[in-house]
Write a protein that binds this DNA or RNA. Structure first.
Lengths: 347, 347
DNA sequence: TTGAAAGCGCTACCAT
DNA sequence: ATGGTAGCGCTTTCAA
């Protein structure tokens, strides 16, 4: 049924090894033969079986992206979609395919078998929510190329790419200070959430470095949705001394906060300034529009794919890790401040 | 290096065909042998090479999803991400992988070769923005299983799944009528855009069926972003007779419209009711919140995958198309009305 | 119930 | 520059 390399060989009256060499554009084949065979391929509509090639060459030109699709929410949707696009933009042009693997927490090992060991993928990009230490160690041991999405905050000897949330928090805090805000609070997140901890530490770092102290009374790591934002502000407004600016963990918390402040007739940005992490999806559309930190998640995909392709291409270099400094394993994406009305007092 | 079926055969002192039969859980192998060999596999950490299996079995357990990732905007991001998740939720549990193919318009044929003919995928789901008629015909001719995302409005003899936009428009229009609105306008979209045409026809169908006539003066197919919405309302407000309700093509148009109405002090929903297609990303967060039509795009992925798996599993049935009515080729997802403040006059 | 051998469609090595 | 042949790691007859 399907035309194979043998059919071409027969039709062209050559050995199939010759056809194979034409496929791989070997320099040992005359241009005349190449042309002739290629024409025949066209005529016969021949497309080599990638699976047979894969078996013979021992690679499949496929990258597996392992993420947890089950935790559906607006934020992750957008994050992962952009990562997918970013990764594809790098690997696609290099003729690698992209397989999406939906891996729920705890199933990391199972999917490793399914993709890495079964040779369905030549390399993987894996979200750190599903990459445990042992799995990472195993991958390293077998020298299977991989990159982690998100920093693991441990002594890693493997590659990872992450948004620099600490730097982002610093930028956002510095912006508020530059606008003359001095009593800066921080709302949203969870005390034990690493994303929160990183951002929070960036915020405290800047305050301390300016000789200001962090007032724990103005910090409410109490959830990440609109309702949480609303309730936090409700509680906050009972304090004897109010913050004059608030950093929000995300758009929804910020939206809830804004809603409560408006109900109470407190003006933003005059009485209280507001800034938020993430420039999506509400930041440009609130009243006033929110100053935010744009996290380039597409770039996160791009960088992780670039790092991965580097590993694949010069595996010798990458294996020779002893010479490389620790920092070479981590790649950071710098968030960008987007200034809007919610935090601008001096025009 | 890697342990293969031969290693297992040797270790177990059996023929590799026996091992293969254990892998495929053949009924002709005694339970004793199965247990023994399986233990050895565990011990030796054996994972079969999916690529070798694929070559032997002539299938790769992979579904290709062909979409155009390059047209980046909030709406498509969310749409495609949900489709990916929906498709994965069906094919993953059936042990199929999902490969994302970024196909820009005009490149359809090239990618068909890369995935279908080269046997990288057993079947494909392809967005109709990149599926031209000839390609579809070719796929049918070679009996390659595929499903189109989006209805092609032509005499198709192949399967497609789409959101029922016309039905959605009907629902939304009927809702406005039930709230006592009678002068209903329609804003956003482009005159030649098929999405617009379908929605518009649902809207006119309902009006006509109620004996109301469509006033073209209240229809502005003039773009799909916030600015367009704003400008349209600006223009609309100069009319001698205003509509008392407006259907918007999307959240951004609706947001722009709302903004202009607020500037002019026109109250929503009292003086003018507003409804919009799509329940994301702004609909719940505007003032007042927008009545919207929720398009279940995750379900779009689910259904297309289900249809595809059906085709794969009983190809004989599917090939016997002569008996099946035309309508069997189309699957529709019903949009859901989400009523919010922007269109409720009677409480 | 198990084994032997041929084959899936390519590549890679060694000859010529 | 081209051909022959032995794999790659599995499945699938057919025989025992």
């Amino acid at each position: 049924m399907k035309v194979t390399i043998n059919d071409i060989a027969k039709a062209a009256n050559v050995a199939k090894s010759t056809v194979s060499k034409v496929l791989n554009n070997s320099p040992h084949i005359s241009d005349a033969t190449k042309d002739r065979i290629r024409t025949i391929m066209k005529e016969m509509n021949y497309i080599p079986s990638s699976i047979a090639t894969g078996l013979a060459k021992r690679r499949c030109n496929n990258i597996a992206l392992m993420i947890d699709l089950s935790r559906r929410n607006d934020f992750l949707n957008n994050l992962f979609y952009n990562i997918i696009g970013g990764v594809e933009s790098i690997v696609g042009p290099q003729n690698y395919d992209l397989t999406i693997c939906n891996v729920t927490q705890g199933e990391g090992r199972k999917f490793l078998n399914r993709y890495a060991l079964s040779q369905k993928a030549d390399a993987i990009i894996i979200d750190n929510s599903i990459l445990d230490k042992e799995t990472a160690a195993d991958l390293e041991k077998m020298k299977f190329p991989f990159v982690a999405l998100g920093d693991l905050e441990t002594e890693q000897r493997f590659h990872s790419v992450d948004i620099d949330n600490r730097l982002g928090a610093k930028k956002i805090t510095e912006h508020l200070l530059s606008q003359g805000y001095r009593r800066i609070g921080f709302i949203g997140g969870q005390k034990n959430e690493s994303l929160f901890l990183r951002r929070f530490s960036g915020y405290t770092d800047i305050l301390r470095s300016k000789g200001l102290n962090v007032n724990p009374v103005w910090c409410f790591p109490e959830g990440n949705n609109e309702e949480n934002g609303y309730e936090i502000i409700k509680k906050m407004l009972t304090l004897p001394i109010l913050p004059d600016a608030i950093i929000c963990m995300n758009n929804y918390v910020a939206y809830g906060a804004l809603r409560r402040l408006q109900e109470k007739g407190i003006s933003v940005p005059e009485e209280i300034g507001i800034v938020t992490f993430d420039n999506e999806p509400l930041a440009p559309y609130t009243t006033p529009p929110l100053t935010s930190l744009h996290m380039d998640t597409f770039e996160l995909g791009v960088k992780s794919a670039e790092v991965l392709m580097d590993i694949i291409h010069d595996n010798t270099l990458a294996n020779d890790v002893t010479d490389i400094e620790e920092t070479a394993f981590q790649t950071w994406i710098e968030p960008q401040l987007v200034v809007r009305g919610s935090s601008v007092r001096y025009k």
